[in-house]
Design a protein around this nucleic acid. Structure first.
Lengths: 234, 234
DNA sequence: CTACGGTCTCTGCCATGCAAGAGAGTGATG
DNA sequence: CATCACTCTCTTGCATGGCAGAGACCGTAG
């Protein structure tokens, strides 16, 4: 379920379309609410409507687009409630991943996490938000893969895609002092994992997710006043 | 994402096919490993191959079937490892649901849980495994819906479908003394929820899932020796 | 009897055409 | 000027047909 981002070369046409469209949506290249025409996409990719149609269908089950029968296909616009729910799930899964990783003992992912922290320290020190955002993504990624539970990973990736999380990270890190605080929390989590203290690692990781959510919400523009979908607000 | 089991009447053709096939797979009407031919299904349902094909594609993203390109479509056969992972996720999500429900305070689902327990007590008392299995399903269902997190619910249902859990419940309850023990654990969980003790509710719920998993594994026939797919055991 | 090569059928994959529903735009009417 | 009804176009839904790859089966050679 929900293949990773890789594999867009020799796969079938529809697999390429899926990968391409997924990338565009989670990167923000196309905005939530935007309509997606089967015909237009088919012409753009130089294929027929059939593979495009099936690709959109899969993206629907992944929660990235919404197909309104006989009307059209649109990029999903998560409601405020859905965002809250997604963060609740993120907290849950990442907390569990931290605990599972702690239980596994010494595995390569832990080394890579520590290496990640070293680079992150440097990025924070020189105030390089761009690079730090990348490292944050890699940190959470290592945590999940380190849990060594493929189902957990698959569900996590689905969630992150729905959140278009890569876009949000930069917002939350734009809050003053947030990168430094975030970095410290990462350090603490890894420390607890190394000590094999799964319970504490989970607890701290969950608190970290809540903190990052608060930072994100604080950085969002006028929460709830503007309902514009980006195309043409009423 | 992943619509519930309801709604198979006035929806589109492919929605009906999806619901029907999903039902057959999770009920065990068709066995893991069985091949599914687009053409055969299309003829059976009296439709063309297109909606069948799209339905199978969605079932693939739900993890119920596996489409091997140019080869065929087959009902997924969960490996032993996958089953372990699925139970890990089940423990995680149901534990979280218990905690969330406890935090919500007095909601209708709690009343229904208590009513469920009364019926379950009666079923256990008269050794009615069939009815108790139903009530167990309803119990876990109430717990999840009571958490009031639609994402949690959607992911949970996907997991349960992959496990074909409804079939497994009966196996685990066939272990001597398991129904009584299970019923007691349910009581304890609800008690903690009513007391709004979310942490303990989560902990006990997770332990309950682990216990049910142990009971299930103990009841499975020769774990790992026979690789028969069930179609024609030697 | 065993091992190998070719063919043959079955599978999903994609392209195309037609039909039906939804919505916008336009015209007439009060 | 406002409102309603109609048509017209756009969208997706479904049916159908040709195509290419993978695997099974059979015939043949050693």
């Amino acid at each position: 379920m929900a293949e990773g981002t890789g594999g867009s070369a020799n796969r079938s046409i529809q697999a390429q379309v899926i990968a391409e469209m997924r990338g565009r949506i989670i990167s923000g290249e196309i905005d939530p609410g935007d309509p997606l025409s089967e015909l237009a996409l088919a012409e753009e990719f130089g294929v027929s409507r059939t593979p495009v149609r099936e690709a959109l269908k899969q993206l629907q089950t992944e929660g990235l687009v919404e197909i309104r029968p006989r009307v059209g296909t649109f990029v999903t616009t998560p409601s405020r409630r859905e965002i809250t729910e997604l963060f609740e799930m993120k907290e849950l899964l990442e907390g569990a991943a931290a605990r599972l990783l702690a239980q596994r003992g010494r595995v390569p992912e832990i080394d890579r996490l520590q290496e990640n922290l070293r680079e992150a320290d440097a990025a924070v020190a020189r105030d390089d938000h761009e690079r730090y955002a990348e490292l944050v993504g890699e940190f959470h990624d290592l945590l999940i893969t380190g849990a060594d539970n493929h189902k957990l990973e698959a569900h996590y990736r689905t969630l992150m895609n729905q959140l278009a999380y890569s876009r949000l990270v930069k917002t939350s890190l734009s809050q003053p002092g947030r990168p430094l605080q975030s970095d410290r929390e990462h350090h603490l989590v890894v420390e607890l994992i190394v000590e094999k203290d799964g319970d504490s690692a989970e607890q701290v990781m969950r608190e970290h997710v809540r903190a990052s959510r608060r930072a994100l919400m604080a950085g969002l523009p006028t929460p709830g006043s503007q309902s514009s979908t980006g195309t043409a607000g009423a």
